[in-house]
Design a protein around this nucleic acid. Structure first.
Lengths: 200, 200
DNA sequence: TGTTTTCCGGAACGCTGTTCCGTATAGTTC
DNA sequence: GAACTATACGGAACAGCGTTCCGGAAAACA
């Protein structure tokens, strides 16, 4: 639940944060995690601050933007997803199976976190921390899997891993709240189509 | 540009709207169309009212919700898209070609209207006029094309046309503002995957 | 304990979509 | 043309959002 200890432990030439600051940051992370799972990622910042027993100023000092808080809350799961890529590639029967398993993992992650997929769009002039973090960590993982799967089927087409990843994320939008919408199936269909495509 | 004349012409037992009311409604539709293409579908309501030279009350009397205004502005193009379905099915070489052409049409429509795809998510407890209208008009068209294409390839799998249509719409989110994201290609890949899938 | 540095709380700001109501005006009747 | 009524208008006001600001509290240090 805690963030990397990078900013909680004294760096060279830096004093440690005050203990109430560290305590509040942790309360905020816990409260945010709870509120996000209950009311979705779009829950008001005030609600999180209230649940953590903290003022508005405090939340914005620790997390300069709403997006940063979301990143901090889901950092571990995103990291786990990124690290699952190479592992699946090693342990699966075929590269395509590895890709499909990884994608299912990613989809499950997005769908169970209500509103995360919608929040992923880099609305704010491309400087959206959430979007940037997902891209940074997951595009390389996705790319490796895609290349391996394409090589397996001797498909020499060029793929844009970023594009595919964003497509998967987009397909997950609204999946949790719409019982008639089957994101899982569509994503697997999309993968089929991507692997099938001929080089341009 | 004008709406259907349904509510501008006197119905039985109904008096015609006042002429300033009709004039303002038209001004609003024109202003909204202009603002939407300039600033995207998410443009503030105040901006549209200002451009039309009209107050806040007026805009909400004619269009009870932001969503209704968007529907009114794009009604003709959605209608055209719906009607293109049967026509393409008649004039194309194969049902699959018709489906792909229709999907390309739909994608082009969504992508050129900045923000329309994002606005399509039924946020407001399912009572979103925009979402409902799109579903009403386009799901049947999409369904006919899908069935025809599946029959062609002797694929007996069941498809959920609503799911596929929503998936296509989702894939278009952010397509206009992200040069690295190729929605067109992904959508065609998705169609490939959907047509390829085996019955469950 | 006294001083300094850091951090906190919550009111306030600017931006949304939407509602409300006193006022203006088109349509109707004389 | 004047008087009257139903209809529509304008824009201030409301609620809710993310974010900023700053006087005051509290931790760390001497």
């Amino acid at each position: 639940m805690a963030e990397t200890t990078a900013d909680e432990v004294p760096q060279l030439q830096e004093r440690p944060k005050r203990i109430d600051a560290r305590r509040n940051k942790q309360s905020l992370l816990d409260a945010a995690a709870a509120v996000f799972t209950k009311s979705g990622v779009d829950a008001p910042v005030r609600e999180i601050a209230a649940k953590a027993g903290v003022g508005m100023g405090t939340i914005y000092r620790h997390f300069p933007t709403r997006s940063d808080l979301v990143v901090a809350v889901y950092r571990h799961q995103v990291e786990a997803c990124a690290e699952a890529g190479p592992r699946l590639l090693r342990e699966s029967d075929t590269p395509e199976a590895a890709l499909r398993a990884w994608v299912a993992l990613f989809v499950n992650f997005l769908v169970t976190k209500h509103g995360l997929a919608s929040a992923l769009h880099g609305d704010n002039a491309g400087s959206d921390a959430l979007h940037a973090y997902f891209v940074d960590r997951l595009v390389p993982a996705c790319e490796a899997l895609l290349h391996a799967a394409l090589a397996q089927s001797q498909n020499s087409s060029t793929i844009n891993a970023y594009s595919v990843l964003k497509g998967i994320g987009n397909l997950c939008v609204g999946a949790a709240t719409d019982p008639n919408y089957d994101a899982d199936r569509l994503v697997q269909n999309l993968i089929s189509g991507v692997l099938l495509q001929t080089s341009p």
